[in-house]
């Protein structure tokens, strides 16, 4: 099937998409956007989080066909040119990135949190990020990063 989807503001087209392919697979393997990650492909880790029409979703659980005609924003679409989004910048500065495999999903989840709640409490941050697994950091510096990004915005 042919899929039409707007990704990071650009209309894109993917041909020969199989019915079983996920939005994550299409982004990574057909549209050249491997930023969203594939740590579980079962909706358990959040590494594949993208905005679908402004709502963060696990793209591994979204069938590609469901994205037809809709807007997708991935981690690759957060920075403006060389200027990182404040969330991205604070992840780098705070040491919230080790292997970084969780980072794209966490950055999108934190970006969404700060859009909705510009000054979140620690409990609110934890709740918002509870669906994103990180195996390297123990989360402390991720919390630091989100706090800093909230202060910066």
């Amino acid at each position: 099937m042919r899929l039409n989807v707007t990704v990071n503001g650009r209309p894109r087209q993917a041909d020969d998409v199989w019915p079983g392919e996920s939005l994550l697979y299409v982004l990574r393997e057909r549209l050249g956007l491997p930023g969203s990650k594939n740590a579980c492909e079962q909706g358990e880790c959040g590494s594949c989080t993208v905005y679908l029409d402004d709502v963060p979703v696990c793209s591994c659980l979204v069938a590609a066909g469901q994205a037809e005609g809709r807007q997708v924003r991935t981690v690759e679409g957060l920075a403006e040119g060389d200027r990182l989004d404040p969330v991205q910048q604070s992840f780098v500065d705070a040491g919230a990135v080790q292997c970084g495999f969780c980072t794209p999903g966490l950055v999108v989840a934190a970006h969404d949190l700060l859009r909705r709640t510009p000054r979140p409490s620690d409990e609110e941050i934890r709740e918002a990020l509870a669906g994103n697994l990180c195996r390297c950091t123990g989360y402390e510096k991720i919390l630091d990063a989100v706090r800093t990004a909230a202060d910066a915005s």
Binding site: L33, P34, L84, V107
Partner: peptide, 12 residues
Amino acid sequence: RRPDGTAKVRGE
């Protein structure tokens, strides 16, 4: 900062 940090947060 890590030399690979920026690429990692950009998904690149």
